[in-house]
Simulated scan of single mutants.
Amino acid sequence: MEENLNMFSAENIEMYINDYAIPWGINIAMAIVIYVVGRFVVGMILSVFRRLMAKSKYDEMLINFLESIISAILMLFVIVASLNELGVDTTSLVAIVGAAGLAIGLSLQDSLKNFAAGVMLLVFKPFKAGNFIEAAGTMGTVQKIGIFHSTMTSVDNKEITIPNGNIYNGNITNYSAKDTRRADMTFGIGYDDDLLKAKRILIEMLEADERVHAKPAPLVGVSELGDSSVNFTVRPWCNASDFLKLKLDFTEQVKLRFDQEGISIPYPQMDVHFFKEADNTSNKDA
């Protein structure tokens, strides 16, 4: 009984206060201050980051994703600093977090590859939503660029989902990147037809089409003396939005105009010549 009373004596209480309560109270208070100030500083950093990214006109999805990653990393440092102030051994905590990150990374290699490719697509912007592209062996209009995969709509209105890694690691052809395009067409006429007349008709048709640009000037010339036809290469420039319609319309108009002018578009053909040899056998018998 006397020992219990001695534990609550003035000297022991003062010792407990000086040795435990005050140091622990200071540590707890400092840990709280570090956490509160740290959160405030992280918020300021994220605010500056978002303003800079917005001025650079990066995709909103990329900004939000990078902001969440930076926030998680910075808050991890804040929490570690707070726990360290409380005397917690944070070395083992950091080691556990690192080992967990390594294990997750190894199990999600393909997903991380697609994620990295998605970030690169959003940063460098080889294409954007609404562009007509050819990538990963697929051609279509881009609907959405995601972090892990992108969505396209084919010309026959099928939705196609492609992993970003497949897109970024191959050739990307963006047909919508430029305002103008060149339509490459080939037309063949017969060897007996008037070559200069056919060339003049093609030039007149190009000059009469308002969709064809005067500069750069369209190219019309004989490109090949083929097996069954003399082939003209016709290369007019036009607005990218007019490309397909111009190519279809012009091809149809050439056929109709050549028919009117009596210029033939020959079928693939082959001339076979037979030579009759003298019958030497009958001469010998005679």
Rank of each mutant, 00 (worst) to 15 (best):
114 N>R: 05
91 T>C: 00
274 F>H: 07
256 L>K: 15
16 Y>A: 06
4 N>T: 11
261 E>Q: 12
147 I>N: 14
96 I>Y: 02
238 C>N: 05
71 S>D: 12
178 K>N: 13
36 V>L: 13
118 G>V: 02
285 D>I: 14
138 T>R: 10
208 A>D: 11
97 V>P: 02
19 D>Q: 12
155 V>T: 09
222 V>W: 08
29 A>D: 01
227 D>L: 09
28 I>W: 04
109 Q>P: 01
123 V>Y: 13
120 M>F: 13
238 C>H: 02
160 I>E: 04
23 P>E: 06
184 D>A: 11
119 V>A: 08
101 G>H: 03
64 N>S: 11
208 A>Y: 10
207 E>V: 02
165 G>Y: 14
83 L>R: 05
178 K>M: 11
148 F>P: 00
42 V>S: 04
111 S>P: 00
203 I>S: 05
223 S>Q: 10
31 A>E: 07
182 R>A: 09
84 N>H: 09
268 P>L: 08
248 L>D: 08
84 N>T: 12
27 N>R: 15
149 H>N: 13
249 D>Y: 01
246 L>K: 04
226 G>V: 11
251 T>R: 15
11 E>R: 13
94 V>S: 05
233 T>K: 14
67 E>V: 01
187 F>D: 00
80 V>D: 01
110 D>C: 00
221 G>K: 14
13 I>F: 11
133 I>P: 03
217 A>M: 09
9 S>C: 07
234 V>I: 15
54 A>C: 02
219 L>I: 11
76 L>T: 15
285 D>E: 11
261 E>G: 00
108 L>N: 15
31 A>C: 10
134 E>F: 05
115 F>P: 02
153 T>G: 00
187 F>V: 13
77 F>D: 01
30 M>W: 06
222 V>S: 05
96 I>K: 07
90 T>I: 15
99 A>M: 14
169 N>A: 07
282 S>K: 15
43 G>T: 10
8 F>A: 12
102 L>R: 00
216 P>Q: 10
112 L>T: 09
180 T>W: 08
266 P>I: 06
62 L>Y: 06
129 A>F: 07
255 K>P: 01
127 F>K: 04
204 E>V: 01
96 I>W: 02
249 D>T: 04
143 Q>W: 00
212 V>E: 07
202 L>R: 03
263 I>D: 03
86 L>T: 07
239 N>F: 11
273 H>F: 12
132 F>P: 01
152 M>S: 03
104 I>Q: 04
250 F>M: 08
50 R>A: 10
78 V>H: 06
36 V>A: 09
268 P>M: 07
250 F>W: 05
266 P>L: 08
61 M>L: 15
131 N>F: 11
68 S>W: 01
126 P>F: 07
157 N>I: 08
277 E>V: 13
246 L>W: 02
54 A>Y: 06
280 N>T: 10
59 D>C: 06
105 G>Y: 14
131 N>Q: 06
130 G>Q: 08
147 I>T: 08
285 D>N: 10
10 A>P: 07
